[in-house]
Amino acid sequence: MKVLVTVLPKPSVLDPQGAAAAEAIRHLGLTGVGRVRIGKVIELELPDSTPDAEIHRIAKDLLSNPVIEDYSISK
């Protein structure tokens, strides 16, 4: 199966890339843009039998850093 892990900076962490992108969106002429956060998406190919706990372990211990990032998992 394919699993997507989305990693985003925590709301409390400064995200200068997101702020720069928000500013650029304003330059596109779009007003009303709120906060923009930039993270990453990781696609994993895993055996169908992989338990959720293992996927969470990969996401928490390697793919994200819980000090600065949150993650979500979608299959």
Binding site: V13, L14, D15, P16, Q17, N65, V67, I68
Partner: peptide, 17 residues
Amino acid sequence: LCESGLLPGALVRNKGL
């Protein structure tokens, strides 16, 4: 050292990019 948990906190992208 921060990633290993030997020191607290983390280092992220410079504010000025």
